[in-house]
Design a protein around this nucleic acid. Structure first.
Length: 229
DNA sequence: GCCAACGTTGGC
DNA sequence: GCCAACGTTGGC
């Protein structure tokens, strides 16, 4: 099962670290000297501390999820901020991330960090609210679950590939902050300078889990009280 | 529904 | 280890 959409959450929070585990079957394969080595492996092992061009480790994030129903392999992948809010303890694991860079960013997350809940692939994409990281990276059990949309047959239980974190709903933003508006600022800041000039949402558009500098985060938050442009 | 951007796969 | 083909993301 290749990289699927952003994410999804079970009605489960912590305590789930284990999972079906096991899932033998085609063992052997992976470790061989043959396999491995590939663009992916690169981003995989290295750059854990979001090293790219240094960046003194981030503490603010943006995480994408789809708020509208969409059936993938027979399963509805819908998971908007209202869905998170409705869960027990308003907490969920952020499973299903199958992109190395996004995974590595999740591994950089610390308890207490804040993240924007971004609505993607929908009528009106944008930032809907805030959440808090309440559990740091641990094994994403869905990679071993053959019935899960995010099942990854190439991942072995002895050496799991994918991680997830737990997030807790914090609040809605005072108003929805549309992608279109963020983009206007981005373009403006790109030509004249400003906090959003390098925002990952535009420079790394397809990353489902991305970091924000404190400056970016604060600026976006300041838009809550500003008039839409 | 289209399609550009871009990550991943796999042949050579 | 290159790179073309393929598949996914996600805005529009």
């Amino acid at each position: 099962m290749p990289p699927k959409r952003t994410t999804r959450a079970g009605v489960k929070s912590s305590k789930e670290s284990k999972g079906p585990e096991g899932s033998p079957k085609d063992d052997a394969v992976q470790k061989g000297p043959g396999k491995r080595k590939r663009a992916a492996d690169k981003s995989e092992e290295q750059k854990s501390p979001s090293d790219t061009s240094s960046s003194p480790s981030y503490s603010h994030w943006l995480m994408k999820s789809e708020p509208e129903s969409r059936i993938e392999d027979g399963v509805d992948v819908k998971f908007g901020i209202e869905d998170l809010k409705a869960l027990p303890n308003q907490t969920s694991c952020w499973d299903g991330v199958r992109n190395y860079q996004a995974r590595n960013f999740m591994r950089d997350m610390k308890e207490g960090h804040q993240a924007f809940f971004y609505h993607s692939n929908c009528k009106e994409p944008g930032i809907a609210g805030l959440m808090k990281i309440v559990k740091e990276a641990y094994v994403d059990h869905t990679q071993f679950d053959k019935k899960d949309v995010h099942y990854d047959p190439s991942s072995k239980s002895e050496n799991p590939k994918w991680s997830m974190v737990d997030v807790k709903y914090e609040r809605m933003t005072e108003r929805f902050i549309p992608l279109a508006e963020l983009k206007k600022y981005h373009l403006q800041h790109k030509s004249k300078g400003g906090p959003l000039r390098n925002m990952a949402l535009f420079t790394r558009a397809r990353l489902s889990v991305q970091p924000l500098t404190t400056e970016e985060f604060d600026f976006v938050l300041s838009l809550e009280d500003a008039d839409p442009i």
